[in-house]
């Protein structure tokens, strides 16, 4: 029996996360005040539902997901755009991109990082229909 580990869960999930819709789901990617964030409702919900289903692919995994973009005016800053269904409230503020996430944005290769709180985060590239990297999928192990 094939074990659906996090890499496989990500591989399956990414098939259903539409990079084109994700790219422009925030209506103002330059907004700086967190109260200014706004979304295209339908596209957000489609992407959110994909994340929720990804989190359920292997019920034995306790994971949470976030989709990230880089700030268009500063590629050293990462913006959490959509969170999945788990209880963790993502850092809702714009944060400096960590080296592992930067590596994924730059190379398209997946990476792994132990967070400051001791959790393990896995990062995967999200591509659009032209194969450009438009975001990063973070899957965090909640253990």
């Amino acid at each position: 029996m094939r074990v659906l580990d996090i890499d496989n869960v990500a591989r399956i999930g990414l098939m259903y996360i539409d990079g084109d819709k994700f790219e422009n789901v925030m209506t103002d990617k330059f907004s700086l005040d967190y109260d200014d964030v706004n979304y295209i409702h339908d596209d957000f919900n489609e992407l959110k539902i994909a994340l929720l289903k990804l989190e359920r692919i292997n019920p034995d995994l306790d994971i949470s997901t976030v989709l990230w973009q880089l700030r268009p005016d500063n590629s050293n800053l990462a913006v959490p755009v959509i969170a999945g269904g788990q209880g963790r409230r993502p850092a809702h503020l714009i944060t400096p991109v960590n080296p592992e996430m930067k590596h994924v944005f730059t190379t398209g290769e997946s990476a792994k990082r132990v967070t400051d709180e001791g959790f393990i985060s896995h990062y995967y590239a999200l591509r659009d229909s032209e194969n450009r990297i438009v975001g990063v999928l973070e899957i965090r192990e909640n253990v």
Binding site: V25, V37, N38, Y39, H41, F44, A83, R89, P90, H92
Partner: peptide, 21 residues
């Protein structure tokens, strides 16, 4: 609140009018 990235609309403190839906 959409600022927390879980949903695309504010259920609390509606600011953008389309969220009233």
């Amino acid at each position: 609140k959409k600022r927390y990235r879980f949903f695309p609309f504010d259920g609390d403190e509606t600011r953008f009018q389309e969220d009233g839906v």
